[in-house]
């Protein structure tokens, strides 16, 4: 089956910033994304866990999207503008997709 080159971008970001990030992604031409909960973590800001949380002041989510390589730079710039001042990680990797026209 023929596959096509694409880019997979995964952003781990504070849950309160999720809507702003997905808005930036849509602005960059992302056709779809998925949001996954992050259960716990640790880093320079200390350790945390979702257990017992009643607010969104703590906690992270992971937003994943697939995008065509030519839109990657614009997406990274717009995503970085959201993440820059916050706790978060932006990663990009190569991937292959079956229906390139959807990305």
């Amino acid at each position: 089956m023929q596959t096509h080159q694409a880019k997979r971008v995964a952003v781990i970001i504070e849950a309160v910033m999720q809507s702003r990030l997905t808005a930036a992604m849509e602005d960059a031409g992302v056709s779809g994304y998925s949001v996954l909960p992050v259960l716990a973590g640790g880093g320079r800001s200390g350790n945390w866990t979702r257990e017992g949380q009643v607010g969104r002041g703590q906690g992270m989510v992971q937003v994943i999207c697939i995008i065509s390589p030519d839109k990657m730079d614009d997406l990274l710039n717009k995503a970085f503008a959201v993440v820059e001042r916050h706790i978060g990680v932006i990663t990009g990797s190569d991937c292959e997709v079956l229906r390139a026209e959807r990305f």
Binding site: E14, V16, M17, R20, S45, G46, V54, G55, R56, G57, Q58, R85, H86, I87
Partner: peptide, 22 residues
């Protein structure tokens, strides 16, 4: 507060250390 305000502070004042206020 430890519900509504921390969430607002994370958006509006991300440089503030959440460990301190929480």
């Amino acid at each position: 507060s430890y519900i509504a305000v921390p969430a607002a502070m994370r958006v509006a004042l991300p440089e503030a250390n959440p460990s301190i206020y929480l």
